[in-house]
Amino acid sequence: MWNVPVLAHGALGIWDEVIFISIGVIFLVVMGAAWLKTRALPPELDEPTAPSAAHDAASSTPDRFRLD
């Protein structure tokens, strides 16, 4: 019978390996998804209202500034 634990020294019980590896797999999958999503995502950054150095304070939005 296959009985080779991946992590040999679990201190939290027999589910150590399963939980650790499952979490690792989930995060790596999410990481891959984030990579793909960000790669495909067009940068929705240059909104018409976005101020730059040339804009004055009155036309600015408080959380967007296109850095040159």
């Binding site: 979490i23 990481m31 793909l36 960000t38």
Partner: peptide, 24 residues
């Protein structure tokens, strides 16, 4: 250059997992 941002975003997830090894 368009791939720089995806690599950096993905790395945030990898680092989150690294932090988890301290909690374990």
């Amino acid at each position: 250059p368009v791939l720089v941002r995806p690599f950096w975003v993905a790395n945030a997830w990898a680092l989150a997992l690294v932090v988890g090894t301290f909690s374990a």
